[in-house]
Every structure is written in C-alpha cells, then in structure tokens.
Design a protein around this nucleic acid. Structure first.
Lengths: 200, 200
DNA sequence: CGTCTATTTGAATGTACTCAAAAGCGGTGG
DNA sequence: CCACCGCTTTTGAGTACATTCAAATAGACG
C-alpha cells in the first residue's frame, strides 16, 4: 500500500473499492497517479486566467467556485464538499484560461491528478470512465436544474429548498456565501431566516 | 444528387461543403441519412415525456425550447433559428424522457437524423465529429454565460443585451416569448420598451 | 366582419435592494 | 486571559422596481 494511503479519508477507498468495485490493483493504480495536497482556509486552488490542467478529489474540507461580475460582486456557482471534484470545468475541457475562483472555505485535503493522467487511466480502467461519464451527465442535469430554480423560484423558495436538501449547511458555510449562492443579499437572507424562525 | 437536395436551403450545403470542407461524397452521405420534414407554426417537434431519439437541423423557420414550471408558467430556455439543431439535449444524451417542449414559432423545415445514424456517420466522417464536439463545447459555454446573465444583470440590461446581439428579434419572435426568455412579465417588457424608445 | 389572442396602459402592492449603523464573533497579540 | 481589531451578521428606514390584477386597445386569422 502506498505511503499516501494512510492519510486518505476512508470514504475514498470505500468509494472506489466498494461502490465502483475497483480491484485493489485498480485502486492502487489510480492512487499512484494522485498527489496529496493541503490548502488552507481562504487559499485558492484556482484563479481566473489560469488554465485548469488538473482535477482534485476533495478528500476533506469544502470549497466554493465563484466568479466576479462587472460590478465587482462575487457570485458563487457552487460549493464542493467531501467526495466531489474541484476544478474550473469549462477551462478543463477547453484548456483555455478559466473564469472561476476555486477557494477553500475550510482547510482542505486534495488528491490531485493531471488531465492527461486521468485520461490515460480512464482507458486502462474502464470502470473509471463509466463513473466519470455518469458524473458528467449528473452535473449537466444539476446545472439545468439550478438554472430552472434561479429562474422560477422566489428567493424564499430557493432558501427553503436549500435547507431542506442541506439542513446542516449553515454549520459549515458562512451566511454571506449562502446568500451569494442563492443570489440574494446577505441582509435579505438574514431577515428571511429570522422571519421563518419566528413563524414556527 | 438526391431528390431531397433540391429543397435544401443553400446554407446547408454551403455550411458543410465550404465551411467544414466536406467532400461532395461526404455531403451526400450525410444527406442520405436525413429526412426532410415540415412542421407548422405552433406544432411541436417534441413534448415532455418523450425520449429525444433524433436531432433535426433547422433549415428554415424558428422554434423555442421551453418547460412549464410548477405554477403552470412557460419558461423559454432558448430560441433556435436557421442553422441550429433542435432537440431536448438532456434527453438526447441520457435517452430518458425529456422535459422540454420544442415548438415551431414559424413554419419550419427540418432535416431529421436519428441518434444512431448520426453516431455512425461521426465515425465515418471525422470532420462531422470535430464539428459536433465544437458545437457541444460552444453550447456548454453559452449556457454558462446565460446563467451568469440571469444572475447578474437587471431585466433592463438583459433586454438591452438581447437587442444589441439580435436587433431584429422582435421581427420574428412575439413579445411574450421574448419576455419569457428574459425572465420578465410581458407587461414589464412592453413598458420597458416604451420607456427606452421615449428616452431617445 | 367578428372572434380570439397579443399588446399596451393604469393603479396598487410587495419584496428585495440600498445605505447606514449597531451588535456579535473570532482571532491575535499584549 | 483579556482587550482590541476586523469581519460577519443583524437591524432599521426608505426606495425602487417588477409584479399583480384589471381593463382597454390593437392585431391576426378565419
């Protein structure tokens, strides 16, 4: 077993060996191409203008992908928690300079792999490719769904949806970030939360 | 030359022969797998629940993709004009029942091809695959951009952007549809247009 | 010409925003 | 360990803007 493996969140091994039925060899192979990396709270994994040449499995911690609009306003596209992958996916596919900041909200542990190595491993481990294709279609559907939510739901409904699906999100993500994700002002979210708490 | 070809918008031939450098043989091959089809204004090419098994080159006319939200409100995702492809792309890739209506805004001429045949032709005509990959990344970027517009711009700015990029859109698309696309009420768009016209 | 739909106009309303300031909280250094 | 500083969250007041409901006008199509 590689030295790295000792530090790994058990979820990672579970994920590949149990859920995706990787053989120990396949798992070792995948792991051997991944680099362990720490980033501290508020550090950036990626900034606009950089080309996204790697992706990183988020082993521990949480991050946010955001852009800055022409008014200088931060707009959070999504959060990532354990068992997600980090990157600016538009830039990753096109290999053009990206637009996203990817920033740690908590101290994070990453397992980083280059695009080339990942592509190579996809060929050597068909299960990896299957899983990845699955992830891509999932994330495409998720972004369609998010688009629909932003367009059709009121801020209050978006908030209620979010806490229904992620009841503990306020324990990990500061209010201002949640507000940005929901596309409302922090003051409004604070008020809304208060009103809803009083109602019951 | 096939019988169909006579009816074809010259753009189509130009597109493949000149812009993508298809040989006459490749062009004929592609064409031989496409079915010519008319649909009338307000007819549907696709409805929610149907699996999208074909795509259609829009040779003439224009269409809208829309969904109906839980309040019964129509939400237009995008319009398609000449030289675009029609379908519910989520359903096309997943081969699960779709969510989109695809409806003709004007009488339309389509060139329809099945997913299987298109995939087969992609293998036989590498240029077709190149072009298609290009289209997919383009449309992914476009939907990211649209998401950003909906989130960051005011209704007025969204309107101004639209008429800047498509100055003649009102000549072809009814106001209510444009309003739905911009995510505002028809009344508001009507007022906005009036105000802006008066200002100059 | 008449009916049906689309667009325009009017008035009132609500909701999230802005600006501004106070309170709460966390982290740092003395 | 406490005091201070900076940042986050809360609270307040006023405003702007799109929405809703309602009705009138205009336009399309048989």
């Amino acid at each position: 077993m590689s030295v790295i493996a000792k530090h790994i969140n058990p979820k990672f091994q579970h994920l590949f060996q149990d859920r995706f039925c990787f053989t120990p060899n396949e798992y070792e192979l995948l792991l051997s191409y991944m680099q362990f990396q720490h980033i501290h709270k508020k550090d950036f994994y990626l900034r606009p203008g950089e080309i996204c040449r790697t992706k990183a499995y988020l082993n521990k911690g949480c991050t946010r992908n955001f852009v800055v609009d022409e008014r200088g306003h931060e707009r959070i596209l999504f959060f990532a928690f354990e068992d997600w992958w980090l990157g600016d996916f538009d830039s990753y596919y096109t290999q053009k300079p990206g637009t996203n900041y990817v920033q740690a909200i908590e101290d994070c542990e990453l397992l980083v792999i280059s695009k080339e190595n990942f592509a190579m491993l996809e060929e050597r481990i068909p299960k990896l490719k299957q899983w990845y294709t699955y992830k891509v279609t999932r994330s495409a559907s998720a972004s369609l769904k998010r688009m629909e939510e932003i367009r059709t739901l009121t801020p209050k409904e978006r908030y209620l949806n979010l806490i229904e699906q992620h009841p503990h999100i306020f324990q990990r993500i500061p209010l201002q970030y949640i507000a940005s994700f929901l596309n409302i002002e922090p003051q409004s979210l604070s008020r809304m939360r208060k009103r809803l708490a009083e109602e019951r």
